[in-house]
Amino acid sequence: MTTIAVTGHMDITESTVPLVEEALRTLLREHQAGELTGVTCLARGSDTLFAEAVVEAGGGLVVILPSRDYQQAKVKPDHAPAFKRLAGIADVVTMPYDTANRDAYEAANGELLKRADRLVAVWDGMPSTGKGGTADTVEQARQAGLPVDVVWPTGAERGA
């Protein structure tokens, strides 16, 4: 059994989505169906694309919610259908925070890493703009000795 966590950008462009989807499918192909668990916070963008690829590969999902209010406070209406569908087939773990804030996100990232054998980072390689971003999670994983697979296909871009 392999457990892979994800971190990544939420603001990838529409034209980047299929590039990342294919890169994630390729990365996950080496794992046997039933032998893979994906761990995600199920944020829009990279997290959700990863969750879809894990399910497509026959793997199971663990969703780490940063706070009790995360779904109501942070999941936007256009992302809600995918969030609900994927969370509905996952083991859901909610961190002990009432509100989604920086501390809750950092704790959720820590929980992701604690559960993982490796990390997939859908990341452009740039430093984080705030504490707890993708670059910080990659650094924490590397410090913990977790292997990190960076996915940023040629032509990938972030939105404004």
Results as ranks from 00 to 15, higher is better:
Met1Leu: 15
Thr3Ala: 05
Ile4Gly: 07
Ala5Lys: 00
Gly8Thr: 02
Met10Asn: 06
Met10Phe: 04
Asp11Asn: 13
Thr13Gly: 09
Ser15Ile: 03
Ser15Asn: 13
Leu24Ala: 04
Arg25Phe: 11
Arg25Glu: 14
Arg25Pro: 04
Thr26Lys: 13
Leu27Ile: 00
Glu30Val: 09
Gly34Gln: 06
Glu35Tyr: 12
Glu35Phe: 06
Leu36Ile: 13
Thr37Met: 14
Gly38Leu: 12
Thr40Ser: 15
Asp47Leu: 00
Thr48Ser: 10
Phe50Gln: 07
Ala51Gly: 13
Gly58Cys: 07
Val63Tyr: 12
Ile64Phe: 10
Ser67Thr: 00
Gln71Cys: 09
Ala73Asn: 11
Lys74His: 13
Lys74Met: 13
Lys74Pro: 01
Phe83Ala: 03
Leu86Pro: 00
Leu86Cys: 01
Ile89Leu: 14
Thr94Ala: 09
Ala100Arg: 08
Asn101Thr: 06
Ala104Thr: 01
Ala104His: 01
Glu106Ile: 13
Ala108Leu: 03
Leu119Val: 12
Leu119Trp: 06
Leu119Ala: 04
Val122Arg: 07
Val122Tyr: 02
Asp124Ala: 12
Met126Ile: 02
Ser128Asn: 07
Gly130Trp: 14
Gly133Val: 00
Gly133Met: 00
Thr134His: 05
Asp149Met: 08
Val151Trp: 12
Trp152Lys: 04
Pro153Tyr: 08
